[in-house]
Design a protein around this nucleic acid. Structure first.
Lengths: 180, 180
DNA sequence: ACCATGCCTGACCGATCGGCCAGTATTCAA
DNA sequence: TTGAATACTGGCCGATCGGTCAGGCATGGT
């Protein structure tokens, strides 16, 4: 098997980095902070990751992969089915990756100049299109509204249980995107 | 009249700081960046403001004052009238202070430890209550959803005209908070 | 027993950070 | 004209930043 030490250390670094990014924001977390939290040296972090942004990319990677899967799956659906699919899947992602959502929201000002996550950005725009379910600029804007809104609610960790967050996302997205 | 040089310089510092905070995020902007953009020295920025967070507070001050006015005015309204008032006023504030909204959203992770803007945070929570128009946890969550959503849409400066942003806010908030 | 490989670290680098201070330029009332 | 008040600045401080590097240490195949 592949050496377990490598994966164990890498995983711990990513785990601690996510918590710190969420808590203080990407810009306010230093490599030293991450290293200390992960119980290793700063040099070790840079041994496993090419730089600070590479750590960020690793933190976002699982969510990015799931998002890519959702976007790809929705490609050969009808518009309406794709919208419905995007709504339910986005809510599940928000619940599953609520910590990551928080981080993403905060790094938006600098996200565009980090090549490691260009695909995530592109998929995010595609998700917005799917959620809108239409090319109407207003509906597209509302989809952006919905994205920011649910991601924003992920920022208050202790405030909602998983079930509450799921329900909140469900009601909010449907009111916004599927008004009766 | 009060010395015009003082106010002129202070105003220019605040103006440039807002643009930079919006563009790169508070943490990624240095006092030197602000000084250069404002056409003065870093020492001058610190002559006029006690520190970096004091500059942030000055950037947020006009919006904070308006928010305090809205919250105070809504105090002696009925719940329903207060909700309606909060919706329209919040939309107007989003349009008027869209740059500031962007900054606020980005500094949320550190906002709680900046005493200069504690009142703004408190008023923000009160605004959420007003928008919810009810003590139902779900409606409170949706009000938070609405806050994050509209503020998030303020992050794409060139993407919406003032009228589009106003319309987007109106439709979005009413769908979320006043579903038919 | 040996050595190669891979994991990890302390020490260090130049750059930049927010902030401070002594002193200079400007302004303006007396 | 003069002197105090105001506006401003260059230069410096200690701290911390992201990142590099040479070498130590453990592990496991031979």
């Amino acid at each position: 098997m592949t050496t377990p030490a490598r994966e164990r250390t890498r995983h711990e670094i990513v785990r601690q980095a996510m918590g710190l990014f969420q808590e203080r924001g990407f810009g306010a977390v230093s490599l030293q902070d991450i290293a200390t939290a992960a119980g290793c040296s700063k040099a070790t972090v840079l041994y496993h990751f090419a730089g600070k942004t590479a750590v960020l990319a690793a933190v976002l990677e699982p969510a990015a992969a799931d998002l890519a899967r959702v976007v790809a799956t929705a490609r050969d659906m009808s518009r309406d089915a794709a919208q419905e699919f995007a709504i339910t899947e986005f809510i599940e992602m928000a619940v599953r990756y609520r910590g990551v959502m928080d981080v993403v929201q905060e790094v938006i000002p600098v996200i565009y100049e980090i090549p490691e996550i260009a695909q995530l950005v592109a998929d995010g725009i595609q998700l917005q299109r799917l959620l809108a379910g239409s090319d109407d600029p207003l509906e597209l804007g509302l989809a952006g509204f919905a994205l920011s809104g649910l991601m924003g609610e992920c920022r208050h960790p202790g405030e909602h249980t998983e079930a509450e967050l799921r329900r909140l996302g469900d009601v909010g997205l449907r009111r916004l995107l599927r008004p009766s």
